[in-house]
């Protein structure tokens, strides 16, 4: 994943406001990168640009060799299918069971449901430790369980890139810790790249690299605690 000279503005005319300033960033495949900084510094904007949820205005965003600057809607959608999204809120569909929610991650690939969709979804639920909760609706699950279902949904199609936006914000300390640990473990096992926005100092141990942002610029980069740890214990 590569950003070069990426700038972005919100609004138009008098109220136009620059949120990203000529950003350069390269994340090699398989790295787990945390993005930190005060709110409004442009972290989430980077996620939406990399994920293809917003059009690139200036500069270049390349994901898995594909250029997103000037991409049409179809290419943006193709890019979204390469990304697993984990949101601040779990954003599960309340009319669907956990298994069906996870299955939507497969259906989102645009080729309908594969014949083994249920099996794959259940396997992924087992990976996140929810094998016994496949038939529950979201109101029957705890906050941590919901976020784990959301992670299973993001990972089920095995996307090369995971984009997460403060996935622990709505969780208590221990649950948040477990959720990020789980995310890191699964991503590591499958060679997925992770870009995660977080305020949460309690989970920084799980990053390979920590990036500090301020006012639309990356002001500091340091290796995370996990970088020293062996990749395949």
């Amino acid at each position: 994943m590569e950003l070069s000279r990426l700038s972005h503005w919100y609004g138009a005319g008098e109220t136009r406001r620059q949120v990203l300033f000529e950003l350069d960033l390269v994340i090699p495949r398989g790295e787990v990168v945390f993005l930190m900084g005060p709110s409004g510094c442009g972290k989430t904007t980077i996620l939406t640009l990399v994920g293809g949820l917003r059009s690139v205005q200036q500069g270049s965003v390349r994901v898995a060799g594909r250029e997103l600057a000037g991409a049409n809607e179809a290419r943006l959608i193709a890019n979204r299918r390469q990304c697993g999204f984990i949101f601040q809120a779990h954003n599960l569909h309340r009319s669907l069971t956990a298994r069906e929610n996870v299955r939507m991650g497969l259906e989102a690939q645009g080729r309908g449901l594969p014949p083994d969709a249920d099996e794959r979804s259940e396997r992924m639920l087992a990976v996140v430790g929810l094998a016994d909760h496949a038939n529950k609706f979201q109101h029957q699950l705890s906050g941590g369980q919901r976020q784990r279902v959301a992670i299973a949904r993001a990972l089920v199609a095995e996307p090369p890139l995971i984009l997460a936006d403060e996935p622990t914000a709505a969780l208590d300390r221990q649950t948040g810790h477990d959720v990020v640990a789980l995310l890191r473990r699964v991503a590591r096992e499958r060679g997925m790249t992770v870009l995660m926005v977080t305020h949460d100092n309690r989970v920084l141990d799980f990053a390979d690299r920590l990036l500090e942002m301020e006012d639309g610029r990356i002001v500091a980069a340091r290796p995370g605690a996990a970088a020293a740890a062996p990749v395949n214990p």
Binding site: G51, L53, R81, H93, M104, G105, A108, G110
Partner: peptide
Amino acid sequence: DHLAEYATFKAMGFSNRA
């Protein structure tokens, strides 16, 4: 009521048509 869910699905790669 489902606008947030629809937006999520779009972010996941669902087309408008779907």
